[in-house]
Amino acid sequence: MQKITAQQIRSSFINASRSEAAKLNLPQNFDTLDWDNLDFLGWRDQKMPLRGYLIFPDGGSLTGVLLRAPEGGAKKNRSVLCEICRDVFSKEDVLLWVARRAGASGRNGNTVGTLICAEFLCSGNVRVEPPANEINPDPSEVVKRQITGLQSRTRLFLERVRGR
């Protein structure tokens, strides 16, 4: 992912009002992010922990969505798989993040949700090389497939937010 500015982030949202985008708090580590190893920028608002943001570069433009986490956080009685990274080894909590749909549909209260890592660490999860084995003798090829899958599933989720 290319480095982006706060203004680019604020103008990328497809399901947030201008005032919601203007009030967002950037990630605490925004100035030191490892942009080369991010497929999307995702974070929880430190002042409003039930609010999350996901910014995805696609085709030369940025698409941002405002997300909402469930009240009470993650339930500890069962494990669920993040739909974005699908990392079966991650010990991170996964939440059902919900986004208002873009446009009139969202203004009418329609939403769409998906399971995403609670702290949006998906880009790091897919870059963990598995041990070589008979089925996957080249771990770097596995990582490339995982990155491609993450990008594809993120794109599909954003299409659902757009209502397409």
Rank of each mutant, 00 (worst) to 15 (best):
S90G: 07
F30C: 05
G64A: 13
D93G: 14
R153M: 05
I116P: 00
W35S: 06
G106N: 11
K3N: 03
R162S: 09
L33A: 02
I84T: 01
Q8I: 13
N77H: 13
A102V: 02
K144R: 14
P27T: 10
G163C: 00
P137G: 11
E71V: 14
E159P: 00
G124M: 04
P49W: 15
I84Q: 06
A74R: 15
P70I: 00
V98F: 00
S140E: 02
D31Y: 13
I9E: 03
T32F: 15
P57Q: 11
L156Q: 15
L95S: 02
S90N: 07
L26S: 08
F30Y: 10
V98R: 11
D31T: 13
L54W: 03
R107S: 14
I116F: 12
K144C: 00
S152I: 10
S140Q: 03
G103K: 11
P130V: 09
E159Q: 13
A6N: 02
K91V: 15
S19H: 12
N136T: 07
S140Y: 02
A22I: 11
T32W: 15
R86C: 00
P137K: 04
N133C: 04
N77I: 00
A21D: 05
L41F: 08
C85K: 01
R18E: 15
G149W: 02
Q8V: 12
V98I: 12
N29R: 08
R160Q: 08
G73Q: 09
G106E: 07
I135V: 15
W43C: 01
A99Y: 05
L156T: 15
N110D: 14
D34R: 11
I116E: 03
E141G: 06
A132W: 04
K91I: 15
E92S: 14
P137Y: 03
E71D: 13
R155A: 11
W43T: 00
D34E: 08
A118M: 05
N136Y: 13
S11C: 06
R127T: 04
N110V: 04
L95E: 09
A6D: 13
D87L: 13
L66H: 05
